[in-house]
């Protein structure tokens, strides 16, 4: 075999190893996080035993793990992975590193839906916690429908998608602000709380449903790896000459990533930063090859989310800082440091 081919295989193995290590760290971090909390601290072994059903833990401990912490951590893992993958997909198919899952307006649609439920009490379901979720999801689906309609237009460019997304964000923002203007203090605080993003809302069954949906969509994302490589590195004409239909591929990828974003954000509220940062951090480790970037972003997203949530729960316990805030405050400067200190991102 040619020595260049050998080097390529060698590099691939190193990258795989790094992703594996990141995965293992994430698993340990998650176990550790499940043991931490204001009511009962457990070490990792004890937590693992409870999860595997090996230990005769007290009923209280078992309840705390199964009803409170396990759904929360699982939500962090699945939500972080889904948002990071959605971000990576959107950045790639739009050829733009500034894009995050919030760019296309899906999240602002969700915020509008939540505001309708909270402030006006208008919802597809009777008023409850689930009414907000249902509204947020429905409104973000409306945005997905707009994206599908855009994709059916002939020759719509990547930039047009972004600009329409920004317009949708402005429009929903204006309507939400108007509602806030007339809202009561209680409603305002509820709306603000929703927009911070939190992982504590869904119960175990909901988290399981979200997990199934997200894990079901992931293989489809992987299928488009080569198309994303061609699109992200060379643009439309280069992609066509590589055998990709850019318009169709872009539309399908955007629908998939918007769906993944909607599913998560309807339950957690606005969490955007992980979808921007995790793909870029992954690129620093393994480059822009989507066959590796998608799994790596998923793991990195999960890691960031669990890390930020655990910090938010324990730093000022018993006060819990919402994960969306924690991610931006801790992740933002870290992200800037990585970008500025890495030669690859400097021109």
């Amino acid at each position: 075999m040619d020595s260049i081919s050998e080097k390529h295989i060698e590099n691939g193995k190193t990258q795989f190893l790094m992703v594996l290590i990141l995965g293992i760290i994430t698993i340990f971090l998650s176990l550790f996080a499940m043991g931490q909390g204001s009511s009962s601290n457990l070490d990792m072994m004890a937590t693992l035993k409870i999860i595997l059903g090996l230990d005769s833990a007290t009923e209280l401990q078992s309840d705390i793990i199964w009803k409170l912490r396990f759904p929360r951590i699982l939500m962090a893992i699945i939500g972080g992975a889904a948002l990071a993958v959605a971000g990576a997909l959107m950045q790639g198919c739009l050829g733009n590193p500034l894009v995050s899952p919030l760019t296309l307006g899906v999240a602002s649609g969700a915020a509008l839906g939540a505001a309708f439920a909270i402030v006006l009490g208008v919802s597809v379901l009777p008023y409850s916690h689930l009414a907000i979720v249902a509204n947020a999801f429905l409104f973000s689906l409306i945005v997905v429908a707009i994206i599908i309609q855009l994709g059916n237009l002939r020759s719509i460019s990547a930039e047009s998608y972004i600009l329409v997304g920004i317009a949708i964000t402005f429009i929903s923002g204006a309507i939400v602000s108007t509602m806030q203007y007339f809202a009561t203090d209680a409603q305002l605080s509820q709306l603000a709380h929703w927009s911070f993003g939190s992982l504590s809302r869904p119960d175990l069954i909901q988290v399981q449903l979200i997990s199934i949906a997200v894990l079901g969509l992931m293989p489809t994302a992987m299928k488009w790896s080569w198309d994303l490589n061609a699109l992200s590195v060379g643009g439309d004409e280069f992609a066509i000459s590589t055998g990709v239909n850019p318009a169709e591929t872009r539309r399908n990828i955007l629908i998939l990533s918007a769906l993944m974003t909607s599913i998560v954000i309807a339950f957690t509220g606005l969490i955007g930063f992980v979808g921007l940062a995790a793909p870029h951090m992954s690129r620093l480790i393994i480059g822009n090859d989507y066959r590796k970037l998608i799994p790596c972003s998923a793991i990195f997203g999960a890691f960031l989310m669990v890390f930020a949530d655990t910090l938010g729960r324990t730093l000022f316990a018993p006060i819990v800082i919402p994960v969306g805030i924690m991610l931006s405050i801790i992740g933002g400067p870290f992200f800037m440091y990585l970008l500025l200190s890495n030669r690859g991102f400097r021109r």
Binding site: I4, H8, N229, A230, G234, S241, G287, N288
Partner: peptide, 26 residues
């Protein structure tokens, strides 16, 4: 057929090997 543009713009970083490997994608 393979069309070779004059140049391509790129916002994302990739190893030269992996760019050339895209030729095998079809």
């Amino acid at each position: 057929i393979s069309y070779v543009p004059q140049s391509i713009r790129s916002n994302f970083s990739m190893d030269v090997f992996d760019v050339v490997l895209l030729g095998r994608r079809p």
